[in-house]
Design a protein around this nucleic acid. Structure first.
Lengths: 342, 342
DNA sequence: TACTTTCGTGTAATCGATTACATGAAACAT
DNA sequence: ATGTTTCATGTAATCGATTACACGAAAGTA
């Protein structure tokens, strides 16, 4: 039987109306117990399945939420999504995935598509900053769709966010390098218009100053998050008059590239040069020369985003809460930066 | 304005009926050119957005497709999903993600939920084999929802699949180890009720036989896909009367564990012992001692699955095609198994 | 007995779009 | 002038479920 069974079919069979069937199935207290049981039994016998689309149209709620990420095939984003899915699953929400591929045009398209698809909420990591095109975001908020940023966030009224304390992450990593005896610490940063990179940078700077070390502009390299970019950046650094003796990289991939390039040049790690990364990608732990990195607890970030959404979704429009959750980063100290016994 | 604009609003403003508006917006040829233009202009001015839920209810098509994977935070599955999303995006489909966490109960729940949500198709990597509970799958097929297996597949009539040639993958890896001079090659396998593990094993066995080497039952270890499991398995192997001098592992993670354990015991790789894995996880390439592995081209697998779905979705029920796509595995030879110059 | 509640169910509108069929006007043919 | 097409639009049903309101019967009250 591939025929779809509706409440009308059940009603017809029992010689009652669809309204009664609907009420019986929805535990409406006005229904006689006998009728309810009969309806429920019949529905089961006929293999009735509620049509969610009809329900969604009537209620205006699709029970879908949208997640927008730059790309899904990175351990960090995949883990966040895992967290979101796990937290939302018991509540009956389905998770729709969109990728921006770091394109703002695509980001806007995704936002519109999700709103058009009547998702009940959107969680996203923004792809970059462009001041004027807030229109797509505003459109979301005007439609009263809860919007939550995770990790990469923007400052928009009415939008909650779940981030980690990137400043502290940068500070911890840098402080650790200093404690290991490094005195000329360089920094790989990313697009400074994104808060995450800005704050990691500021944490780095503050750690230097707090320890009485000079901050040198030339030690800061703005680089992409890739192995090759890391190699090139090390190359630049080593050409300086006073080359650094450590790098705090905002990207694990760039950190890996740096390490590969340093090895190539027979600079020994960690005795001559220390490296710390950011994100705690799986490979940092697996390397023979394991890489020190700042963990962002992506699973928890996803779970927390979902929880913030759940809080938000039931509130009436009047009580708009704007929640800013900041998770604590955790420094995983590994061989790439450990001169003392390990 | 957060008010939703419907075709009725447009109709009212223009003193025409909603039917005309609908036709104008859908390029129905029966509509006067002047009317069409007026409607389109007015719709744009009023910021009209088609209600996809209403459309979905009317048409019975949600424009969503469901993807079920054991978990999303593995590079392989994330990459497949990426491929699916990229291929389907231009066609206007949204991708809904479900995780089974290797639980059959969860798998069945997911299947039912997706069918209830009226997805237009389901792509999945099955979580395991249990002969009787085909009911969830049958339910999908009875509802005429195209179902496509990728990577881990089951034999069910009417279901298309996209897999790689696991036999060949196992054969290539094993043959390579033999060519490097290994003579006692062990194998880490997984749940043999899953075709992928069965076939990798069979490829391994065939390669041995073709090269005139003995197949030894004791060299085959059924192990989980984890670093620790790899360590333990090596431990077992080394206690054998004739310990092996190579491992072909169906899992990169187990291969990594094996390598770590071998190093611990000062067995040098690749000169004394060679290792090859499966899946080409990112870390296999990043290691200082990079790990030989069989690539499954997950991105291509995802794209191909999406294409098979697209072919299927437009066919009438009568012309049910059952397509079996088998992709070629590619052996990436790296340091962990290269005794010759590299 | 007559009047008011309460209870269980039916009626019909609604969510927003699509579409088979109906209709009236204009255009064309004879 | 009358009959026939053609064209553009309106009418109303439909997708499947929910729900405000209506209503008759049963139960309770005076």
């Amino acid at each position: 039987m591939s025929e779809k069974v509706t409440i009308y079919d059940i009603a017809e069979k029992l010689n009652i109306t669809a309204a009664t069937v609907s009420r019986a199935l929805n535990n409406n207290p006005k229904i006689k117990q006998a009728t309810r049981e009969l309806v429920i039994k019949t529905a089961a016998a006929m293999n009735y399945k509620q049509n969610k689309l009809a329900l969604a149209l009537k209620s205006g709620r699709s029970n879908n939420i949208g997640v927008i990420v730059p790309r899904i095939d990175s351990n960090f984003f995949a883990s966040v999504i895992r967290g979101i899915e796990e937290e939302l699953y018991p509540h009956g929400y389905q998770v729709i995935i969109c990728q921006t591929h770091e394109s703002i045009k695509r980001e806007n398209e995704n936002l519109h598509t999700l709103v058009d698809a009547q998702v009940d909420g959107i969680m996203m990591s923004v792809t970059g900053i462009s001041d004027e095109n807030d229109s797509a975001f505003r459109n979301v908020l005007e439609k009263n769709v809860p919007l939550i940023f995770f990790d990469r966030s923007k400052h928009i009224d009415g939008v909650s966010s779940v981030t980690i304390n990137d400043f502290k992450g940068g500070y911890l990593a840098t402080k650790h390098l200093i404690d290991e005896g490094c005195r000329n610490i360089a920094h790989f940063s990313g697009d400074q218009s994104l808060d995450i990179f800005k704050n990691r940078f500021l944490g780095y700077k503050q750690a230097l100053l707090d320890s009485g070390l000079d901050f040198k502009e030339e030690y800061v390299i703005y680089t992409k998050s890739s192995v090759d970019a890391g190699k090139e950046s090390v190359d630049k650094l080593l050409q300086l008059q006073t080359p650094p003796d450590a790098i705090f990289s905002s990207s694990d991939f760039a950190a890996l590239g740096a390490i590969q390039e340093l090895k190539e040049r027979n600079i020994s790690i960690p005795s001559e040069f220390c490296v710390a990364g950011f994100s705690n990608e799986p490979f940092t732990k697996f390397m023979e020369l394991s890489i020190t990195s700042v963990d962002q607890s992506p699973l928890e970030m996803g779970r927390m985003s979902a929880r913030v959404f759940l809080e938000q979704v039931d509130k009436t429009d009047a009580i708009k809460i704007e929640k800013k959750v900041v998770l604590a980063p955790e420094l995983h100290i590994r061989k790439s930066s450990t001169r003392t016994n390990f």
